[in-house]
């Protein structure tokens, strides 16, 4: 057992009836890590997080926070959480929410400093009801920090926010990252993981399918990403030399190739009408796809 881990999950399973939402997850997060938990909807991320927060009890296995069982009062005292689909009472201001929550913790943050650090002074005394979506999220973020947590859970922190609002939330998170906070982040925005995390854990069907440093995960996808519009079918493209995977993307295809030059020659050969051609280095999105995509598996 890794006692120095901030979060330590061992053999966590959670079944609802016949559905196994989490199917045996082992995960340790060390102090200072910023870990992104990635996966599609239904991959089991949220259920796993709920086990880690103590909101639900795992069917098997266990989760410990700083050596304490998840959900125990001392475990709860050591974490801060920004939950998906959670709203605060509308008729109180951010400052009021923060000062209420401060009473829960043994060594709470100074409210005024926290408000300054999270950049929410401008609307700290406005009733929550009147805030925009991004402002609300930033208040929730501040609320997650009020207990000076050892581990910060951010469950889909920017879902539903526009670009600018998301960026504001990211800036808050990055500031905390810079201060060495340990963070477990779930998201299905790869850019978000890419932008914030130094470690990525990919979940699929309740299990972990990949776990490693962000660069490492991205590096698992070599070659290039070719995007184009073509009359060729996906099944025709996959048989072209060098092609590792093919995905429909918009009105065209996104093709990951181990040898961009070879693949391009074949493509242009077969479809003279091919258009809107771009070639770039593959991102995290493609990396995850390649780790989880069934097309790839069948082709491999």
């Amino acid at each position: 057992m890794n006692t120095s881990a901030v979060l330590h999950a061992q053999g966590v399973e959670k079944t609802f009836g016949t559905t196994r939402a989490v199917a045996g997850v082992d995960l340790s997060i060390q102090k200072g890590e910023v870990c992104a938990l990635l996966g599609e909807n239904g991959a089991g991320k949220t259920t796993f997080i709920q086990c880690a927060l103590g909101l639900t009890r795992p069917t098997a296995g266990r989760v410990q926070v700083l050596g304490q069982p998840a959900g125990s009062r001392s475990a709860r005292g050591a974490i801060g959480a920004m939950l998906q689909d959670s709203d605060l009472p509308e008729l109180m201001t951010a400052r009021e929410h923060l000062s209420l929550f401060a009473t829960y913790y043994s060594r709470p943050a100074d409210i005024a400093t926290l408000i300054g650090d999270t950049g929410i002074e401008a609307f700290a005394d406005t009733r929550y009801k009147k805030l925009s979506g991004g402002q609300k999220r930033r208040v929730q973020f501040a609320l997650a920090l009020v207990g000076n947590p050892d581990l910060l859970f951010l469950d889909e922190p920017t879902t539903g926010l526009d670009q600018a609002a998301s960026r504001a939330v990211w800036n808050n998170v990055r500031a905390m990252v810079d201060r060495g906070k340990t963070i477990l982040l779930t998201t299905h925005y790869l850019e978000e993981a890419d932008a914030l995390a130094d470690r990525i854990v990919v979940m699929q069907k309740g299990g972990i399918v990949a776990d490693g440093p962000t660069d490492d995960i991205r590096g698992r996808v070599g070659g290039a990403l070719i995007s184009c519009q073509t009359s060729l079918l996906q099944s025709q493209v996959i048989s072209i030399p060098g092609v590792r995977s093919v995905q429909e993307k918009g009105r065209g295809l996104a093709i990951v190739s181990e040898d961009a030059a070879l693949t391009l020659r074949h493509l242009l050969d077969r479809d003279r009408q091919l258009s809107d051609l771009t070639v770039q280095k593959p991102g995290l999105s493609e990396a995850i796809d390649s780790l989880t995509d069934t097309t790839t598996q069948e082709a491999a």
């Binding site: 909101l55 005292g77 939950l83 689909d85 709203d87």
Partner: peptide, 17 residues
């Protein structure tokens, strides 16, 4: 209302009894 809006979950995650 507070339960449906997730407020209760935030409380339960916090160390408030």
């Amino acid at each position: 209302t507070e339960r449906e809006r997730g407020w209760l979950d935030i409380k339960r995650v916090s160390p408030a009894p």
